[in-house]
Structures are given as C-alpha cells and as structure tokens.
Amino acid sequence: MTYPQDPYGQQQPYGQQPPYGQPYQQPGYGYGPAMPPPQEQGLAIAALVVSIASLVACSGLPSIAGVIMGHIAHSKAKRGEAGGQGMALAAIIIGYIGVAVIVLILIGVIFVGILTDWDFD
C-alpha cells in the first residue's frame, strides 16, 4: 500500500542538499523574504530632538540646526542610505515652526519698540 505524497513536500534529511532546481530550506526555517538590515536613524533622531528642544526653549539657533539636520536626514532616507524618513520630516516641520515663532517674537518686539518710540531712559 502506498501513501499519497505529502502536500507540503518531503523534508530533506539534515546535511543534504535538495535536488538541482529546488530551493534549499534549512531545517527548522521556513521560506520567506529576508529581513533587510537595520538602517541608521541617528541623524533623524538627533534632528527631531534638537527641533523639539528648540521649540520648547524658544531659541532660534537650534531650530535652524534642527531644520538643516532634518533636511540632510530626510534626503539620506529618500535615497535609501538611512532610515527615519518620518522622523526627519517631523524634525523639519517642528524646526520651521520654531523659526516662525522666533520671527514672530522679533516682529512683535520691533512693533512694540516702534509704538513706544524706543525710549530706554
């Protein structure tokens, strides 16, 4: 009496290669796409941290640095050289918001100064 062939295929004995034309499967491992290597996200994380810190502290220079770092990280992520494209984009947006806050504060100070005739006496 013969049994029908296993629908999942016969497992190769350990240490033997499958016949030519069939993919090799290591014992205990299934077929599937290989995981890509983890990508570097350090620049995107640093850009996001600097942008958030500059927004909280209301200082202009770190906002500009966060925007520049965010643009560099975003372009690297788009080229596939690094990861963290979303974090880089968030850093750019938050950095520009920080720059806008600084510009609005400066405009407000100048406006108040003009209205009061810049009297420092």
Rank of each mutant, 00 (worst) to 15 (best):
D121F: 09
A44L: 05
I93P: 02
I94G: 00
G80Y: 10
Y31A: 13
A65C: 09
Y24T: 00
S54E: 11
P36Q: 15
V49C: 10
Q17H: 06
G30D: 09
Y29E: 07
V112E: 10
P27W: 11
Y29A: 03
I92K: 02
V49D: 09
V67H: 03
I45W: 01
V109N: 10
A90M: 15
V103C: 04
G84Q: 05
Q12S: 07
Q16D: 04
D6C: 09
L115A: 11
S63K: 00
K76R: 12
P18M: 00
L106P: 01
M87A: 12
Y31I: 03
A82I: 06
K78L: 14
A46C: 14
A44D: 06
T2Y: 00
L48A: 10
A65W: 08
T2H: 10
I64P: 11
I45A: 02
I72M: 12
L89N: 11
I68R: 07
V50K: 01
S51A: 15
L89V: 08
P4D: 13
Y24L: 13
Q39C: 07
A90P: 00
I97S: 02
W118C: 03
G60T: 08
G28D: 05
K78C: 05
D119S: 04
G66S: 08
G32S: 02
H71E: 14
S59W: 11
A91I: 02
I45R: 00
Q11F: 12
I110C: 07
Q5H: 09
Q22E: 14
S75E: 15
I64Y: 08
Q22H: 14
W118N: 04
V112R: 00
S63L: 03
G15W: 11
Q11R: 14
A100I: 14
A44R: 03
A47G: 12
A34F: 02
P36A: 12
Q10D: 11
I45N: 05
V101M: 14
P27M: 07
T2K: 04
Y24F: 12
G60F: 09
Q10Y: 12
V112A: 15
A57Y: 10
Q12L: 06
I114C: 10
L55A: 11
G83R: 00
Q11E: 12
I52C: 07
Q22Y: 11
Q26G: 10
L55Y: 01
P37K: 11
A53Q: 08
Y31L: 06
Y3H: 08
I114A: 12
A77E: 05
Q22W: 10
H71G: 13
L106V: 14
G15L: 12
A44W: 02
I97R: 08
